[in-house]
């Protein structure tokens, strides 16, 4: 028979006390459900998911990160012009989102994508079954049309939609046809436009749409305005994640429903007017 020493008894009591405290603390603190992120990489560029995931983790994200492989592997042109617009591809992602929503109804769902992958995301959101909604959407260097009507998309998004834009995006400057099949400027260059039409429905939808234009301060976080550099983990950690994990919009966010100035970033980076030397 094992002899119980004084040391063992004290150790056992300490362990029970610790377990009790841990249980009590777990009961007291509100455990927020961790989001599931669905990510769509760009056409012919399959390397950004890792840095986005890493940036989110550095910002405290502990949920699931699921990379939705949508490429046809027939090259970036085919992916950009054909695969990204395929309803079959969009439905595939929509079904995965519906499954995730059914499995964990309380967990937030975020959708993120790069370049032509953003077309897959927007098409998938439009394809969602009635009543299934996602929380936030982030579009990096999106190649969909600036003039795309976002009302049907925003009907299935409960939170906010962010789209990064940059005048220094050399890849988007070179494309002739956007990922929606038109010849208008892509979002990654010009941002989403809101014509002001659609009445209250339109305003409600575009109240939650934000362009995130490139600014010199983003150099601190590794985004030099380039097409794929926007997925730099530091940029995701310091600029994107705080927007996703915040209940309210970031103080600097200006929804498109506020008008044309919402898309402008001319001054925000330089709030000091230099009276000499320029």
């Amino acid at each position: 028979m094992k002899r119980r020493t004084r040391k063992n008894i004290v150790g056992g009591q300490a362990a029970r006390l610790l377990a009790f405290c841990a249980f009590a603390l777990a009961g007291c603190s509100e455990v927020r459900p961790q989001p599931t992120v669905f990510y769509c990489d760009g056409a012919g560029w399959y390397a950004s998911a890792r840095s986005v995931n890493s940036g989110l983790h550095s910002a405290g994200f502990r949920g699931r990160f699921r990379n939705y492989a949508w490429s046809s592997f027939l090259g970036p042109t085919t992916d950009h012009l054909i695969t990204a617009r395929s309803r079959l591809v969009a439905r595939g992602l929509a079904r995965q989102i519906e499954d995730a929503r059914r499995d964990a109804p309380e967990e937030p769902i975020y959708l993120m994508g790069l370049s032509a992958g953003t077309a897959v995301i927007l098409n998938a959101v439009e394809e969602l079954a009635q009543g299934v909604k996602v929380d936030h959407v982030v579009l990096f260097s999106s190649s969909v049309s600036s003039n795309r009507d976002l009302v049907p998309v925003m009907n299935n998004i409960t939170g906010r939609l962010y789209a990064t834009t940059s005048p220094h995006d050399g890849i988007l400057k070179a494309i002739v046809t956007n990922a929606d099949g038109g010849d208008g400027p892509p979002v990654g260059l010009a941002g989403f436009h809101y014509s002001g039409q659609g009445g209250r429905v339109g305003t409600n939808a575009y109240d939650r749409v934000f362009n995130l234009p490139w600014r010199a301060s983003f150099l601190q976080y590794g985004w030099d305005g380039g097409h794929t550099a926007v997925t730099n983990s530091a940029f995701v950690q310091h600029v994107i994640a705080p927007r996703l994990f915040r209940d309210r919009p970031h103080p600097l966010d200006r929804p498109l429903s506020w008008g044309a100035l919402a898309a402008s970033s001319d001054v925000v980076d330089n709030p000091i007017v230099l009276t000499t030397g320029d």
Binding site: S264, S265, V267, P271, I272, T275, T276
Partner: peptide
């Protein structure tokens, strides 16, 4: 801020 955007944040500074 809503009306004039980031221009609302501008201040004039001179090194002098």
């Amino acid at each position: 801020w809503k009306k004039s955007g980031a221009k609302a944040l501008v201040i004039q500074v001179s090194p002098e």
